[in-house]
Amino acid sequence: MSDVMKSTITPETYLVRSPLYRLHKAAGAHFDECSSAAQVTSYGDRSAVSTALIDLSVNHRFGVRGPNALAALAAAGLSVPDKPNQCVNSSNGETVLRLSNTECWVLGAMESGACSADSSAFADCYPVYCQDSHACLLLSGEHLPDIMAKLCGVDLSEHAFPKGAIAQTSVARINAIISHLPDREGTHFVILCDSAAAEYLWGCLLDAMGEFGGQAAGLDYLF
């Protein structure tokens, strides 16, 4: 993509936007197209930052629940965790979060942001819409348990919260789902929260990261 094209990509070009897009724009973020929306690619050069907060809200995700949910996802070729509050990666790059005995959410592959299906593909399950209702933030890098300990009562250190674990709890007094991503080098927490509270949580996380040198970043930080 030429530089001229790149500069014309703004969140307003697309119908799908992150609840945080105004904040990114005001902070001078650079955008690129990703799953039919403008994804933040960078906040300037932040490659040396020890901990990054990245907004993945425009990435696709969907949920299904009901007694058939687990079997239906497995039949569609996705890997399903054995127990609630665990997550696994599927071979196509999607991450399946098992949130209860009979409910799973599927997060699109991180780089492409795309899902191979959506809830409507699972006729014998109850659809759970979690795309626009939720914001999806990625906390990535060092000191993550220490940062989260400032905001959250649950112990998220490596021994209590290993790769593949999920904690559904209160973060800075709002409800959130924290997933410790499996199979990926380094520590990555995906935090899903109500989209109406996204701006508040974004500020809280940046504030908590500050003392550890953490900053907001874009997808370039990962790839």
Partner: peptide, 17 residues
């Protein structure tokens, strides 16, 4: 804070319930 054991999520602060 008082805590409660959630059958799904384990021991949590009572303010989560």
């Amino acid at each position: 804070m008082k805590m409660m054991n959630c059958p799904l999520n384990g021991l949590r602060n009572i303010s989560e319930f």
